[in-house]
Amino acid sequence: MIFKSFIFTGLICLIAQIIKDHTCLTSGHITSLFVSIGAFLGFLGIYDKIIAKVGYGANVVIMSFGNTLYKAAIEEGVLKMLGSVSVGIVSAVIIAFIVTLVFKVKD
């Protein structure tokens, strides 16, 4: 599974890099695009199979965010979809706030 995770995450990053180098899209465009692709793969029922095959490597890419949102939207209801991604968002907000208070901007 470690090797499969390596290959899967690597391939996704490679695709993102190819898109970045050949278009004028920024990193922000590409991550947003990949979240939507993740939700679409969840819609097709593919992403859960990928996670089952690949392991945690499929959980760490941003596509997993879209898949989790979609799954929560159909299982818990559209208005409660954030429940399952709150771990990521809340921990990122807390660490961003603490880091911002502690550190200074490096020029």
């Binding site: 470690i2 990053c13 490679l14 945690y56």
Partner: peptide
Amino acid sequence: LSGGVIGAISE
């Protein structure tokens, strides 16, 4: 390679 290493460590 760097994405792959992150995936492998995540596993």
